[in-house]
Structures are given as structure tokens and as C-alpha cells.
Design a protein around this nucleic acid. Structure first.
Lengths: 370, 370
DNA sequence: CTGAAAGCGCTAACAT
DNA sequence: ATGTTAGCGCTTTCAG
């Protein structure tokens, strides 16, 4: 041992056994006499040996015991959103049960962070991805790291080998998502049944190029975040063409508030506003209150997610609840399966419409042209 | 190469150079002819070699490139608190600049998570600690992992070798905190200058045994979270003995709301309520509104942190602002210094009183006994 | 049940 | 500027 921290070899010498036996004493992965084990552990305690060095184990076993969690945004923004947090909590639960750690990788606006390219991990969970040509997913695939896509997809396998051509169809991949398209559709149908005909939409970001305002008409509708696209598709499925859509740079109360002002300050605003997240919706509620509009008498407002929003009291937001922690747990299970080389079939979790106090029948007959 | 993923040795063979030269081509840590390097990189591209295996690097260099971030609470709670998030964001900034990853380690109520005992990390940032006898810190010290204490301390070196005796004074340790004691004192002095004499306090958790209600009088005042203790000390420094103190299990709006109800429903409630965090304070504001009390006319409410609370509009919370991201950045710098073997002197960041709309002079003469 | 030997993939002296 | 050599600390066949 001479210098530095003691190693397994030092312990073996001190205990008068071979290194392999000492290893067994710690791992329990093989037959060993109780007396021998105790002797080894005693020697370890003597030397203040803190247990097998994980670096040695990892190289030997080829496993780091780490799963990367990659968020398509910087922490400050992602993590102010309880949606990411609850998902992460579920993820920590299922991975923690297997003693697997979570390596936090914020990824600013679609770049490929060095950690994605170089950090040791056995699998990665990518929380938002930009469709078939996501550079982060491509980088992981190149490294042979299994990928779990949460709320994302890579398109049909045939597309993947196209010009982007970066994720071979054979690469271990799993998908965990929610049925947000049909959830949004159900929500909008309920609003129509109440008599609403004129809708405004406050949307989640369309893609990594985040902005606040009406969407760029020149943008490719086939690119960008799939969650946003699916929820917009759900609105269309319900037969609604919104009078106005405001894209926001992130799911945050303040952006919902700005968008709400934008929509509700218009001469003849829509009678119902659908926000694609609860945080955005609650910002719209605040904007309405600030403009002296009563909710839901003057305007109906609905969200998506099913968060607890105690500060909206006495109002309770009408929303579509998604099982956030369960989504994270499933993502963790998917990662564990892929690491073990077992395929993990796609999971689509159900969502549920929840009536609150922020939606009601529109006040009076509305007219579609001012 | 035969089977499996290619290694540096395969690349070397393909490029017709030695392994060490191939290594140099990737690391750039030594002299190499441009032509040779290009040849190596070309061979690597040919073999679809994704770059040096981090596991090999790590064993060889003895560095994992990972810093553990340990929160004294489960994710669900910690991460709903923007305070933790902004700190984490700052941490990610400074560590990210050195390509160091953050391993997320939630630690339920003071236990020692397996990851703390076994995961590879070059240093650890412990966000709340329970004073001199914190088991997590002791476990890290045993492993020889440098520790950065955020908002924590281990007491005087002499104490450390006491009965707990688990963190040798020589263990590489750094401290990053804020001047919360004096910040709270300044806040309370301002309230007193306005004429307030009767105070209620909504406190952060006292320790890992979290509860809602009046603090257990039997508890040892010398144990538990130091941030809570310091802020309470600041109140005392200002010459105030609160009429009532409510301890909360976490810094969350709903707990502030419960505590607010508890205090404000009393027969003759205090004229000023000091919450030890903004989230708690905003819950108290909600409780006041629900009880039909006007803020600040009927009751003054102040917080601590300096968060953006858009949904409190039109009110702006009176608070003491702390530099959260900077705290995280400093913690990151401290970790980097300790990893390099350089001592990092303790950092106490300044805080600043910020007047909002939730505090004012008390309504009328108050009487201290009903 | 225990020991000997091999090697995971890489980097860093040192020698050329 | 390149090659040779020697491990980092551990687990895991395989013999005994």
C-alpha cells in the first residue's frame, strides 16, 4: 500500500487472502466462507478502505452506473417547470432502485453539449427532441448509447437513414409518451359543446429556436418539438381553427401572461383560450384578471398537465392531467431494459380531462367577424 | 478489433501508429505531427470510433469528471423550489465550463443514499447539511471525496473529532453561504422602524425530521439546518421575540398557506409575519387574502430569497434577495479548486433588503395582551 | 471454497 | 515526433 489510498490489493494482503477472494468479500458474487469474508472486512476497516474503487469496477464491467438526463433547454428554464421536475423525480425513483445515478445534462437550444459526446453513461433519457434530425440523439447513437425518448420520436425507421442518416434503425431506442393529441382533442370538444366557437391558443415552443409571438409562417411544420405539434393536432382534430396562435419561448407563467395580454387586448378577443401547458394557462388567467376580465364569465381558459396551482385560488384550472411521475418511472424502466439488452415496447400513457372553474359557456352570442 | 466496438488500439493499427500516438491525436496533450493526427482521425472515422472510452480514461487519470450534487431532501420537494433550481443552474454553469458533469443525488430525510457511498465522483456539493454530525458528509469524507458545503457547516474543527468524529479536520472542505443572519436582521429592523411590535414567524424546516406546526420545545437548538437557525438568529439580533413560530416541512407555497392560516386565524394575530423564504411568504399572502385581510394594511408579510413571483401580482413581496445563481457558481468553483488540490477560502455572499408592497406601518396601536 | 492470471481501454513516463 | 512499457483497480474465468 505504501502511499495513497488503500486498494483491494492492500486489503487482500492485510487479510492474508488473494485479491479475487477479497473482491468476493465485497461483491458477494460468488461462494466465500463467512469467516474469510469477516477477516477481509475487518482488514478493510483496519485500513480505512472505503470499498472498491468505482473507477476500477466500471472499466472492468463496462458499466458506469449512470444514465444521462438530457433536457432540451437550460436548467434555469426547464427546472422552473414542475413538469420536468416531477418527471425527473419519477426517473430518480426507478433508477435509484437499481442504484443508478442521474447525470444532469442541460443542452442549450439544440447544441450538442460536450457531456453528451464524452461523459460515461450506460443510457440516456432525452426529454424533448427535435424530431428525426436531432443532433443530440445522433451523437448518442454514434457512441452506441441506448436512448430513451420522452415525448419525442425519430420518425419512421426509413426516414432515419435519409440524408440526416444518423440514427441506424438498429440502435437501441425506446419511447415513452402520453396521449396528448387525444387529450387536447377531448378538451377542445368539451369547450365546443359549451358553445365556444372562437378560440385562441397559447402554444409551447415550436422548436429549439424559441420566440414569443405569432409563429413564423415560413417555418417547416414538419420540424420541431413533437409534443407541441401533437397538441396542436389535437385541436385540429376537434375541428377547431384558432383565430390566433401565440408561440412562447418556454412553459413559464410570465410568458403565458404576455401571451394572454396579447390575445385578450385585441378588439374582439376569442371566448376561449387553450394554453398547451398549465403554467402558460395560469399566466393567461393572471392576464385576464389584470385586464378586468372575469374568468370564466368573460373568457374561458384551459391548460394541460394537471399541476397543483395553489396560488390560482379560488380558481381551479380546467386541464388535461398527465401522469408525470409515472412517465419518468417508465423512462427509467426503459433505460434499465435497454441497458440489459432487452427491447422496451413504446409506452403511451393515458391522460384525463379535468373540469375546473376556469371554463364555462361563453357569455353571449359571439360573432366571427368584427 | 474483431468483435465489439473499436478501441484506440484498433484505430492505432488501422492508422499504422502506436496506441500512445493515437491517444495524442485525440487528447492533443503532447507533440504530434499534423499529418499523423489527421491520419489517425481519418482511421477513427473509418472505423466509426466514437472517441476514447471515458471509462478507460477515468481509471487511468483517476478522475471521473463528475461532481455529485446532494440535496437533503427528495427531488420532488427540493426541485419545486426555485431556490434549489437556480443554485443548480449556477452550479451547472461553472462546472459545465470545465466539462464536469453533475450527478444528481436526492437524499431522503438524512439517510445516506447508496450513490453517496458508491458512485464515482471527484467532489460533492452538499446543499443542506445537518451540522457537525451529518452522516452524508461523513460518508463522503471516509471516501476521501472533497466536499463543498452550501449553506452548511461542520462546526469548529475541534468539534469534528468529537464523538461523531467522522470528518477529520484535514479533509478538503469548502463553504459557500450567504449573509442571511444579517439580512434577516435588517429586514426585521425595518419592520420595527415602521412600528411593528408583534411578530409571527413562518420558519423553514428545522432539520431532517420535518413537521408542520409549532416547534418541538424539547428539540436540541444546536442541531438541524443551519440556514434556518441563522435566519432565526437574525430575528433575535433585531431584538424581536416572535409571538408565534410555525415550522414547515418544506419551502412550498402550500405550507406557507397552512402556516398563514394557523397564525392569522388566531384571536389577535401579530401585525407582521416574517417568512424565512419567499415561497412560504407567498403562501402567507394567499392565506391572508383568503381570510379577507388586506396586505399590507391589515398585516405585513415579508419573505427571503428574492424570487420572481409573477402570480402574486399586483403585489410585490418585500424580501431579502440572495444571489442564488452566484451561490451555485461559487460552489462549482470551490469544487474545481478542491479537485485540483487548491484550498478554497469560505465565501459569504451578501444579501440585500428589497422593499415591496406587502409591508407597511401597522394599522393602529397594537396591544400585546388580548 | 480459494488463488493465479488475464485484461477491461486508456494515458504518461521514458526511451529512441 | 513517435514507440515501448507499465500500470490505474478491479472482476472474472479457470485451476486447484
Amino acid at each position: 500500500m505504501s502511499t495513497g489510498r488503500p486498494t483491494l490489493a492492500d486489503v487482500a494482503v492485510a487479510a492474508g487472502v488473494s485479491v479475487s477472494t477479497a473482491s468476493l468479500a465485497f461483491s458477494g458474487a460468488g461462494p466465500i466462507a463467512a469467516a474469510t469474508r469477516d477477516r477481509v472486512l475487518a482488514a478493510a476497516a483496519d485500513l480505512a478502505y472505503p470499498g472498491p474503487n468505482p473507477l476500477g469496477q466500471q472499466l472492468r464491467t463496462g458499466r458506469s452506473g449512470i444514465v444521462g438526463a438530457i433536457f432540451g433547454d437550460r436548467l434555469r428554464r426547464s427546472f422552473r417547470d414542475p413538469v420536468s421536475i416531477q418527471m425527473l423525480d419519477g426517473l430518480a425513483q426507478s433508477l435509484g432502485a437499481h442504484d443508478i445515478g442521474i447525470l444532469l445534462i442541460p443542452s442549450e437550444a439544440g447544441d450538442v453539449p460536450p457531456l453528451v459526446a464524452h461523459a460515461a453513461m450506460d443510457a440516456a433519457v432525452v426529454v424533448l427532441c427535435n424530431g428525426p434530425d436531432d443532433a443530440v440523439v445522433a451523437a448518442l447513437a454514434r457512441r452506441g448509447i441506448p436512448v430513451v425518448l420522452v415525448e419525442g420520436d425519430l420518425g419512421a425507421p426509413t426516414e432515419r437513414d435519409g440524408p440526416a442518416g444518423r440514427v441506424p434503425a438498429s440502435h437501441p431506442t425506446a419511447r415513452v409518451g402520453i396521449d396528448d393529441r387525444r387529450g387536447t382533442e377531448a378538451l377542445v370538444r368539451t369547450l365546443r359543446a359549451l358553445g365556444h366557437e372562437r378560440f385562441g391558443v397559447v402554444a409551447l415552443p415550436f422548436g429549439h429556436d424559441r420566440r414569443l409571438g405569432e409563429p413564423d409562417p415560413a417555418r417547416d411544420p414538419r420540424s420541431g418539438y413533437l409534443a407541441t405539434r401533437r397538441r396542436l393536432a389535437g385541436i385540429a382534430d376537434a375541428g377547431v381553427v384558432p383565430e390566433i396562435v401565440i408561440e412562447t419561448p418556454a412553459s413559464l407563467v410570465e410568458h403565458g401572461r404576455s401571451a394572454g395580454h396579447e390575445i385578450l387586448s385585441r378588439p374582439d378577443p376569442p371566448t376561449a383560450i387553450i394554453a398547451l401547458s398549465d403554467l402558460l394557462a395560469s399566466g393567461v388567467v393572471l392576464a385576464a384578471r389584470e385586464l378586468g376580465l372575469r374568468v370564466p364569465e368573460d373568457v374561458s381558459i384551459a391548460g394541460f398537465d394537471g399541476l397543483d396551482l395553489p396560488w390560482l385560488a379560488p380558481d381551479v384550472l380546467t386541464t388535461v392531467r398527465q401522469p408525470l411521475a409515472e412517465k419518468g418511472r417508465q423512462a427509467g424502466e426503459a433505460a434499465i431494459a435497454l441497458i440489459a439488452g432487452v427491447p422496451f415496447p413504446p409506452v403511451i400513457l393515458p391522460v384525463q380531462y379535468e373540469q375546473g372553474t376556469t371554463t364555462a359557456a361563453p357569455r353571449a352570442a359571439s360573432h366571427s367577424n368584427g
